[in-house]
Each structure stands twice: as structure tokens, then as C-alpha cells.
């Protein structure tokens, strides 16, 4: 029995009569077919999105202010943001990718480590571990004694569902409890430094 076409599924979801005898005969196919179920979910999302109409307009003064940013943020007059050094970290190690035994950090972090990741940017490293129970613990390490860059830093973990923020301790440590599997971005920010882990994939099995 073949899958229904987008047109046939649309007619089904919109409550329209089947347009062909063949379509009518295959309607029972919908319930037990994974590709058809996936298409139906997409169509329902499409129809729901269309029923909402366009996103609301933006007030004109906001549009104009955003359009003016290139003029007001010109390099000739650097503002406070221009003094922040920003580094994008790249992944060096992921024990989930290579089937490696995770590093032994259990005693320090309060539980066995399920997964260990290491990111690096310039002279900084971000050492992350998912520990038993779902906590994410990390440490920002500077190999050239640039500790003052991290004074008063915060760490922000941004997921699809929420963002969470925690202080970075003087030794560079930070910790998030109960981190669910998912895709995240991680930011370590101080007044002088912004260290970014743009893609932190915690969906892989540990």
C-alpha cells in the first residue's frame, strides 16, 4: 500500500473529501505509517503557522534604531563592547565520539564522569564533563596566566528551552545541575573576555 501524497494528506487534514478513489482506498494507511505520520506533523505545523498569520509588525522607531546601528557602532568611535575580546572555541576532544574512557575527574566533581569534552580558543581551554546525574561541570583554563580576564565572569548555557547563568569561580570552575540531553551554546563572559562554545551537542549517548 503506497504512502499518500502531500496533496492527499492535506485534503485529509483539512477535512476535504478525497479527490480520487485510490486516495479514499488508502486513507487507512495514514495511521500506521511513519513517513505519513511525519508528513502529517509537518502539515499540522504548517497549517497552525498559517492560521496565526504573519508575525506582528515591529514599531517603526525600533526598525529605524536597528537600521542605524552601522552608523552608531562605527569603529571610529569604539564603545565599551569594542574592548571585549571574543574567542570562538573549537572542540578538541569528545569521549563520546571516540569511545574513549572519560577523564577521571570524579572525586573532584562529586560523581563519576559520563562524558568529557575539551574546547580550545587561542590560549584558553574549556574543559567540560557531564557527570553522573546529569550535571555539567566545567573549568576555563588559561595557559598564559591570563586569569584576570575571568574576574567576575559568568557562564551562560543556552538551550532551545531556556538559558541558565552561573558564576565562574576564581579558579575558573562552573557547574550546572540537571542538564538535559540537547543542543546548547555556552558563553563565558567577563568585562574583558567573551569565550564562546557555539555548538555543544549533549544529545549523544553517554
Amino acid at each position: 500500500m503506497r504512502c499518500l501524497t502531500h496533496e492527499e494528506l492535506l485534503r485529509h487534514r483539512m477535512g476535504l473529501a478525497p479527490d480520487t478513489a485510490e486516495h479514499a482506498g488508502h486513507a487507512e494507511h495514514i495511521g500506521g505509517c511513519a513517513p505519513c505520520t511525519g508528513r502529517i506533523e509537518l502539515l499540522d505545523r504548517l497549517l497552525a503557522g498559517l492560521s496565526e498569520g504573519p508575525l506582528p509588525d515591529v514599531p517603526e522607531h525600533l526598525v529605524q534604531a536597528a537600521k542605524a546601528i552601522p552608523r552608531s557602532a562605527a569603529p571610529a568611535a569604539p564603545g565599551p563592547l569594542a574592548r571585549v575580546r571574543e574567542l570562538i572555541a573549537k572542540k578538541l576532544v569528545d569521549t563520546a565520539s571516540f569511545g574513549l574512557a572519560p577523564a577521571l575527574r570524579g572525586s573532584e566533581e562529586g560523581g563519576p564522569v559520563d562524558r568529557h569534552l575539551l574546547y580550545a580558543a587561542d590560549s584558553f581551554e574549556v574543559d567540560l564533563a557531564v557527570v553522573e546525574g546529569g550535571s555539567l561541570v566545567g573549568q576555563v583554563l588559561a595557559d598564559d596566566g591570563e586569569g584576570p580576564h575571568l574576574s567576575g565572569a559568568v557562564c551562560v548555557l543556552v538551550g532551545e528551552n531556556a538559558a541558565r547563568e552561573t558564576d565562574v569561580r576564581n579558579n575558573g570552575d562552573f557547574r550546572f545541575e540537571d542538564v538535559r540531553p540537547g543542543r546548547y551554546a555556552l558563553f563565558v563572559e567577563s568585562t574583558e573576555l567573551r569565550l564562546v562554545v557555539p555548538e555543544l551537542d549533549l544529545t549523544s549517548p553517554t
Binding site: L10, L42, R45
Partner: peptide, 20 residues
């Protein structure tokens, strides 16, 4: 309307609507 919505659905399928 049905034909064009189906075409839109095919485009969105390629572009990842519904894949979070």
C-alpha cells in the same frame, strides 16, 4: 490552495520544518 500548500510543504520538508 491545496496544490500550492502541498508545494510549500515539500519546500518546508527540504528546509527542515519540524526537525528541531
Amino acid at each position: 490552495r491545496v496544490r500550492c500548500l502541498a508545494e510549500l510543504a515539500r519546500i518546508l520538508e527540504r528546509r527542515g520544518l519540524g526537525v528541531d
